[in-house]
Design a protein around this nucleic acid. Structure first.
Lengths: 212, 212
DNA sequence: CTTGTATCTGGACTTTAGTCCACTTGTGTG
DNA sequence: CACACAAGTGGACTAAAGTCCAGATACAAG
């Protein structure tokens, strides 16, 4: 299926060159500091200057590693993102072996994504905020992976004759993911007061509609 | 069907009290100034301070009328929004009289919304940006109207036995609108390079899937 | 160990959003 | 008309994001 994509969100902005040792140390320092401050006082109440100050580095250093708050937040999710990705790929493999339909796998993927989004929504919101200001491609990396996954599952399903005819699979991949964009997700959660279960069910029934 | 909702986006922050004449004049002045500056130099390249300055008013005056740039942008779309709303309601009436299925009406509504979003995407983007920062309910007014409309059409369709059974209509209303959120829409348009026609077709086929 | 240089660093600086409040002005009431 | 006071106004001020660059420093090559 999809090869694992190199996420490369660890904050090393120049993956080609080797990072100087002091720079790497500062990068780690910044990340642990940010993690602590975010945990203690909430992502939105901590500003970049403060992270730099508490970490004991200058703003220039901070911004050299992370071009904006969104990238920093993404870096903080790096390992969980990779873990989520790995666990999903593993699950797909085992489900496929058991002969589980690809559409069912898709439904499960979306349900898991609901939980992931729920858990990380504060950080993801910051990423979205940064994304809407700068058009920074790096910030879209998670979405790209999600999209690749959904599209791959849709294509497999199509090859397996699970789908109704004549669907624009590329478009549907996007459409299924659209309600999971953080800002929209939070709207559904906290304005509409939908539970994650309800959102998951909704997405599942949406997938069901694609079935032949 | 749905009653026209009082949009009230004209920038009068205190609709109960009557606005003082000088204030009303300033409000109009601000709007025309902003409209001109946005047209000349692009929404994102004009800051609030400049609008105030060119209009010859203080920032306090500007912010008293429009709590943030998003509200100002929304006010600039006020008449087009109302016009769009009216024309849609008119269209629904005539289509219903001709016996057009409600799902077809829904598809047409979404297609029209694609065009509306396309045309106003710069202003809408600013609204979204403001919305993601402040949790300002006023900024959601257009979405609420869209949602009410979609949901009403879905309910009518259900009453008319046009739908497959057991759908969470409230959820589907949101899900159908999710790909039309400006930021996501722009991603599809300018990163994915989807045409508006393709997006419209995608939404239409999504609606089709709901058909019994 | 020395040195050249690419990389890194701190923090002053710019920009923009948005707040605040002392002062001014329009308007309804008598 | 005059006057009280709610409503409106200007612009200084704060907060935060993000830029810039002169000087500092790691590290590779000799």
């Amino acid at each position: 299926m999809t090869d694992p994509i190199e996420l490369n969100l660890d904050g090393n902005a120049f993956p080609d060159r080797t990072e100087r040792a002091d720079a790497a140390a500062n990068r780690a320092l910044i990340l642990t500091t940010a993690e602590r401050l975010f945990r203690e006082r909430g992502v939105e109440n901590v500003c970049m200057a403060e992270i730099a100050e508490v970490a004991g580095v200058g703003k220039g250093t901070l911004y050299r590693r992370f071009a904006n708050k969104g990238e920093l937040c993404l870096a903080l999710m790096d390992s969980q993102l990779a873990e989520f990705q790995d666990s999903m790929l593993g699950r797909f493999q085992s489900l496929t072996q058991q002969g589980t339909p690809f559409l069912e796998q898709l439904a499960q993927f979306l349900e898991s994504l609901v939980e992931f989004t729920e858990v990380h929504s504060p950080l993801l919101l910051e990423v979205a905020r940064a994304g809407i200001v700068h058009m920074d491609a790096r910030l879209n990396v998670p979405h790209f992976w999600q999209y690749m996954t959904v599209r791959a599952l849709l294509r497999s399903a199509a090859r397996n004759d699970e789908l109704v005819a004549d669907l624009d699979l590329d478009y549907f991949g996007e459409a299924l993911l659209a309600p999971l964009q953080v800002d929209y997700f939070r709207f559904q959660r906290y304005v509409r007061n939908y539970s994650t279960a309800r959102i998951g069910m909704g997405l599942r029934s949406m997938v069901k509609l694609l079935a032949a």
